[in-house]
């Protein structure tokens, strides 16, 4: 589904990603772990098409098409979704109107008609219930005055509404208490099918107890230095990253 080949990316002239190779197949959950500043969020942004980052080398292939040059909206139209680490507050646009606009713009780009109002309403009800969201919440301005947990839940709500093929969760777990973490990961798990894939980016092994990865990658200084199964996450939790850094130096 997603194939990243020798990806180099920089921001303001500074190279952050230094040759990433990554392949994700339908139905898989991948986790990317790594210390602060290793390039995790940059990787998420580059896949989603954030124009602040410049791809200097390599390709991002999504469903056999090279998407490296596509705009963020075009990538969304193809089924890529990024759950933001810091969702942006937008006063004056309600959660409901935002998601309606988003869904209908995606449909328009795919040559489909607007979703009928009653179908939209039903879907909004269903998916907000999945994430245990209050009705009142939906008429509030997007992310304005939301708590950290509410913002993350709202991200997963949008994911549920948009039903992406590839969902990238950028530090969706950080700052969540255990109840919010359960609701969020429960939501993510229920959205999993054999046809879609999830890329989880996290600091902490804790989330991976709930959203169980098939593959765990370790990102250090812009490169994936080790990949393994879920046991690797536990090892990182116990030993930290220094042993991997040492391995790097020795190699």
């Amino acid at each position: 589904m997603l194939k990243i080949q020798n990806l180099h990316a920089s921001v303001e002239g500074e190279e952050i990603l230094k040759g990433i190779n990554l392949e994700i197949n339908p139905g898989e959950v991948h986790a990317i772990m790594g210390p602060n500043g290793s390039g995790k969020s940059t990787l998420a942004s580059v896949i989603a098409g954030n124009e602040d980052f410049e791809v200097t080398q390599g390709d991002i292939i999504f469903e056999k098409a090279n998407i490296s040059e596509l705009s963020p909206e075009e990538r969304a139209h193809r089924g890529i979704f990024l759950s933001f680490q810091y969702p942006v507050e937008i006063p004056g646009v309600s959660v409901t109107n935002f998601i309606k606009t988003s869904i209908n713009q995606v449909r328009k780009a795919r040559g489909e008609k607007d979703m009928p109002a009653n179908e939209m309403l039903k879907k909004i009800r269903e998916k907000s219930a999945l994430l245990d969201m209050d009705r009142k919440f939906l008429s509030r301005s997007l992310n304005e005055g939301f708590s950290g947990g509410e913002k993350k839940r709202n991200e997963i709500f949008q994911m549920a509404m948009l039903e992406p093929k590839l969902a990238i969760l950028d530090e969706t777990d950080s700052g969540l208490d255990i109840d919010a973490l359960r609701i969020v990961s429960d939501g993510v798990n229920r959205l999993k099918t054999k046809d879609n894939a999830t890329l989880v980016i996290t600091h902490y092994q804790r989330l991976l107890d709930y959203v169980v990865p098939d593959v765990v990658h370790v990102l250090l200084d812009g490169k994936i230095v080790k990949s393994g199964d879920k046991e690797l996450a536990k090892e990182l939790e116990e030993r930290g990253y220094d042993w991997l850094k040492a391995e790097q130096v020795n190699a």
Binding site: I90, Q105, A109, L162
Partner: peptide, 25 residues
């Protein structure tokens, strides 16, 4: 710009996203 990117990442094209942000404002 960050708000613009956020809207675009949800599939709302640049022109519409700009208009939506100004309208909301």
């Amino acid at each position: 710009n960050e708000a613009l990117y956020y809207l675009r990442s949800r599939g709302i094209p640049k022109k519409e996203a700009r208009a939506l942000l100004m309208f909301a404002f």
